[in-house]
Write a protein that binds this DNA or RNA. Structure first.
Lengths: 171, 171
DNA sequence: CAGCAACTTCAATATAAAATGAAACGAGCA
DNA sequence: TGCTCGTTTCATTTTATATTGAAGTTGCTG
């Protein structure tokens, strides 16, 4: 359980312009990025940039991945803001060229900082509110429920001490 | 970046039958479960069971959470198969009663084992195929691309040695 | 072993998320 | 200043995911 396998399969259409290495890299990153809740197009873009030995323009990404202008622009925006991709200057060239940042640990860090930590903080606030609401409960249920809330808080505290350590290990 | 905040808000309809503690718990678990790619209804069910001092039937879950028969059945199935919930025997009662397993570490373990490890394995296979396909590349690109594939493999190897350790720490 | 309550399944439907592409924007250049 | 190319934005469309509930199944019980 915990959701299905369902393998990523490249559409036939883009088979022509991509080699084995590119296809494998793209599929791999689609899978990992999906794990972080990111859309397919973002994984495709990063995958292609990861194995590309030279910077690519947005136009090249659109063409080779067969994605739209909007998807390319938004995907790159997201990747840049996560520090996963950067624009490099190309002399005498007007358009932007993009390269992948190969330090994969960035993703884990960004994910922890932006997704997990805020949820932990919010959860702690909720736990306080739950504690405070214990008095509304009928006597009989109070002890049992208090125990459960405490269990929850122990986990939240654990998380809040562990994650910064994990972040240090990564970055 | 890395997807939006967008807070879970309980539908007005079920406000009536749920107290503060229940609402807070439900919203908290909806948020965490979503992080693991699980549907809202699954988070709702687990949240309510988590703070419920006594076992609940499927019918109670349907009524109090205002979810359908199918959602309750499937959500419980998923939670049971992940070991997050179990059915307890209730003397002289025909219908099943469910309780939450409070050991939250189970989720992390299940998630790592079922979602992350398989993807790492598959990724390693892909990396081998990429390595093998290097010879198809024009000379000029080979060295750079080989370096990138190696970078990838270093990360995959790291992951494959770290995760089992993480699993031990949890369980 | 018939009837029924409890549960499961799954095709249909509703909802949410991502992709598209036309229109708006903006930076550099003549 | 007005063009032009490259990029961003966002309303619309498409696709994917979750939910519903009726029909099917199971297994207890009288």
């Amino acid at each position: 359980m915990l959701s299905d396998p369902k393998q990523a399969v490249p559409s036939a259409s883009k088979g022509s312009s991509l080699g084995t290495i590119e296809r494998e890299a793209i599929e791999m990153f689609i899978n990992f990025f999906r794990l972080l809740g990111l859309p397919k197009s973002v994984g495709e873009i990063y995958g292609l940039l990861f194995v590309s030995p030279r910077p690519l323009t947005m136009e090249e990404l659109m063409r080779r991945l067969d994605i739209s202008l909007g998807a390319a622009s938004q995907g790159l925006k997201a990747l840049r803001s996560a520090g996963a991709v950067k624009a490099v200057y190309s002399p005498g060239e007007r358009r932007d060229h993009f390269v992948a940042n190969l330090e994969l640990s960035r993703f884990a860090s960004a994910f922890i900082k932006e997704q997990i930590l805020p949820k932990l903080e919010q959860a702690s606030v909720r736990a306080e509110r739950m504690e405070a609401a214990l008095s509304d409960l009928p006597e009989a249920e109070r002890t049992e429920t208090r125990g459960r809330i405490n269990e929850l808080r122990r986990w939240l505290d654990r998380g809040r001490t562990m994650l910064p350590v994990a972040l240090k290990l990564l970055g």
